[in-house]
């Protein structure tokens, strides 16, 4: 489909390229969510994050989310880019972009995509602190 772009990459994500791809003459607006690596978790300094993906399934789950978005909202294009590998504080692990004729659909879809991605896409992050490393959400 040329209205969906899904990329899982070990290289830096290109925000400008995402904006260019998502814009179209039919759109009345675009909505973009850019995730960034925060420097602390619950008051503890984070040194870096490592992202690991089960790549074929991660791609297929992201494709499902994009399809669910089109089934639920009148949107024109959907873009999901996600990083793998080691990211430093301030770097970008995820970009979601949505274009639509009207802003309500774009806002709602963008939120749906990032929220669902965090629940279903097989990608894991490990936080590195000064005193050790922890897989996020693994333990209760």
């Amino acid at each position: 489909m040329n209205n969906v772009q899904i990329i899982l990459s070990g290289e830096s994500l290109d925000i400008g390229a995402c904006v260019s791809w998502i814009m179209s003459p039919e759109s009345g607006g675009i909505d973009i969510f850019i995730g960034t690596v925060r420097n602390a978790t619950k008051g503890k300094a984070v040194l870096k994050l490592d992202f690991e993906a089960y790549e074929p399934m991660a791609i297929s789950e992201m494709e499902k989310i994009a399809q669910q978005a089109f089934n639920q909202w009148p949107v024109q294009k959907v873009l999901i880019h996600h990083r793998t590998g080691t990211l430093q504080v301030g770097e970008v692990p995820v970009i979601i972009a949505v274009s639509a004729a009207h802003r309500d659909a774009a806002f709602e879809t963008c939120r749906y995509i990032i929220d669902t991605l965090k629940q279903t896409v097989p990608i894991w992050k490990k936080e590195a602190f000064e005193d050790g490393e922890v897989w996020v959400a693994a333990h209760p």
């Binding site: 992202f51 089960y54 995820v94 991605l117 896409v121 097989p122 990608i123 894991w124 996020v136």
Partner: peptide
């Protein structure tokens, strides 16, 4: 077959 522990992407 793959074991999928709690995911934490994004």
């Amino acid at each position: 077959i793959a074991i999928i522990p709690p995911v934490s992407g994004g």
